[in-house]
Design a protein around this nucleic acid. Structure first.
Lengths: 371, 371
DNA sequence: CTGTTAGCGCATTCAG
DNA sequence: CTGAATGCGCTAACAG
């Protein structure tokens, strides 16, 4: 039944204003309080948040636009957001765009005209449409995961993380070379000065994603380059943010390049696909599983000896495989800071723009890092 | 800037009704159309969906309440929902409750009083509060994943799935016994009539979850029983719907029962935790990886020879491990049917209650099933 | 085709 | 303390 405040007032023999006050803690005599409470209990009346918001312009709600729902990193961000939101009396609504930038704008506009007090966008690609929205939005927006000058933003040091990973990969290549000592000069294609055994391959994502597609990959290349290694173009693929896509890319890479030694992926999800590809690729032989010789970067998935690395520190992957070299970003922290930033402008009208860059931490796989 | 329809009307020199008609495709002369369009373009005016909905009682929006965000099964359901919703001009809003039944009711009420035309609840535990809500909701609700007589619902044959898994587990125990032929009579504790080698353990979830906690487990026990095997109480644990919880439960199980041969879990996520526990448990030795001798139920994670089974057919798990025995539910289908049901009552006022029970399909792991 | 009028359900003045 | 009145922004009659 769709009761209105007026009907309740009538049943209780008071004015609608009295009921409104009762609901919102205004002045109302004990006597009338009783009557009103009775009627409300009997009818199960619930005020229309909709009408209330139209009046008060306050929903205690924030909308979060996410690229996809089934993602550990995104769920960490939303967990952070939810944590501060609920602590401060807000609720969170999610809209998933399934990696469709067009849908993203649609949902941003939906939230803008729907009763939410603010919006958090977990960013992937920022198009002109996005920028236009950010500039003109009626409600405050903060973007998490991408840099933008058109809104408060919190992003990760993707370049630094990429570079660190590139260096670690290069180092491990050199080490494995040293350990093996069976000099494979014919395979030194990637090593400019030293004779490395095997190449490094990289599965990236669209350049339209400035954080993951550009910064992370540029950093990775820079890291390799600092050790004198150049990523070969035919050892490079582009994938979607899915396991399936990582699988295809890796398989293609593996088939066309017999001398790949390390397969680095732009995300742990893609890496999972790559791992699947390795399993497929060497199915004929009995896999040896994860070989751990106590050092760093020692994750070996199968007897092909090809190592896979990722980004994102996916716990599921770590659990079932023992872990691959990856980097941990402060996803939950970015959610927390993002929500705080948003509430600052919602509640305190904070006007000065903020950009926050969050660091990272290398995770070497197999063995927990000690610090 | 917060433009209203009135201001636009003024700027364009027309009435607000004309602007409204322009926006909604009513009668308006070409001349005025031009003026209105011009003003709207200049100001970037966007009508308040909020006020519109208050007036029209139609939001073209449905709210989906989910227990958690980072779940493959749930994302499959929402993918199904989204598919039919967007095909019929609706948008989807998500609310995640982080497995808190109390929060669940809160979000249900939120949606009820906000502009959504209908609600889909992806159910876990249905409390008295839930039932009360379902009975009195102002907007239509359908629940997916649990049976209830208080709303249209779509659920899976969890009992049947459990039973099938129980039978398969029993069968594989017997087979492995036959193959080994090294009769371990002292370990026959679980086999009433035949001499099985090793026990089966089960990690379930709360009985408050009627589908997963009760039906699935009851079915599993029935399946075992049909082969003369009884689940021992000390070979049983309860876990949350998380990997971490599955890890703890499995470790505890492993430490207290040295003769476990198969470790069945209520979900693939829990199974992932169990796999991690096995890796931990046998870390001192070099894991052998997945051993595939071409038969069914042959997934062996490490040299302990303990096999893990799950429910849910998680693709990530399958990718990185090669797959464990599990059962595939029609999650996406349940989302599709759920959304269809909901739209039927929203748009056509369909009043006769519907219950849909969806089947399942065994997935045996390692080898793709052929049919 | 068009403007005027009357609410949707609520919170908030403002006189009592 | 309380009720009557006003309007949030919009759409849906209703007479022009």
């Amino acid at each position: 039944m769709h009761m209105t405040i007026k009907e309740i007032a009538q049943l209780a023999g008071v004015s609608s204003a009295a009921v409104s006050r009762y609901l919102n803690g205004g002045y109302v005599s004990e006597e009338k309080k009783e009557q009103i409470k009775k009627v409300i209990d009997e009818t199960g009346y619930q005020p229309s948040a909709q009408a209330r918001i139209l009046r008060t312009k306050k929903a205690c709600l924030v909308g979060v636009v996410v690229p996809k729902i089934n993602s550990e990193s995104i769920s960490r961000v939303t967990a952070g957001i939810e944590q501060v939101l609920s602590a401060r009396g807000y609720q969170m609504l999610l809209a998933s765009t399934d990696n469709d930038p067009e849908k993203e704008v649609t949902y941003l506009k939906l939230f803008e005209n729907y009763p939410v007090d603010g919006i958090i966008l977990i960013g992937t690609v920022i198009t002109a449409e996005h920028r236009k929205f950010l500039k003109n939005s009626k409600v405050p927006v903060v973007v998490v995961g991408q840099y933008t000058k058109y809104a408060n933003c919190i992003y990760h040091d993707d370049y630094g993380a990429g570079k660190a990973m590139g260096k670690a990969v290069a180092e491990s290549l050199i080490n494995s070379e040293t350990e093996k000592e069976d000099g494979c000069a014919k395979n030194r294609a990637c090593g400019k000065e030293a004779g490395f055994c095997g190449k490094v391959a990289y599965i990236g994502v669209t350049k339209e994603d400035k954080a993951v597609g550009v910064a992370r990959e540029d950093g990775f290349r820079a890291g390799l380059r600092s050790a004198g290694i150049e990523l070969e173009e035919n050892c490079t693929r582009k994938a979607e943010f899915t396991m399936e896509s990582g699988y295809s890319a890796a398989l293609d890479l593996l088939e066309k390049n017999r001398d790949i030694s390390i397969l680095s992926c732009a995300t742990d999800t893609i890496a999972a696909g790559a791992i699947e590809a390795l399993l497929t690729y060497s199915r004929k032989q009995v896999p040896e599983g994860a070989k751990n010789s106590g050092g760093r970067m020692q994750y070996i998935l199968d007897n092909s000896g090809i190592r896979v690395t990722g980004f994102g520190d996916n716990q599921f992957l770590k659990a079932v495989t023992g872990g691959i070299p990856t980097v941990h970003f402060g996803y939950k922290t970015s959610g927390i800071r993002g929500a705080e930033l948003l509430l600052d402008v919602i509640e305190r009208g904070e006007k000065i723009p903020v950009e926050i860059k969050l660091g990272f931490r290398m995770v070497n796989g197999q063995e927990e890092e000690e610090n």
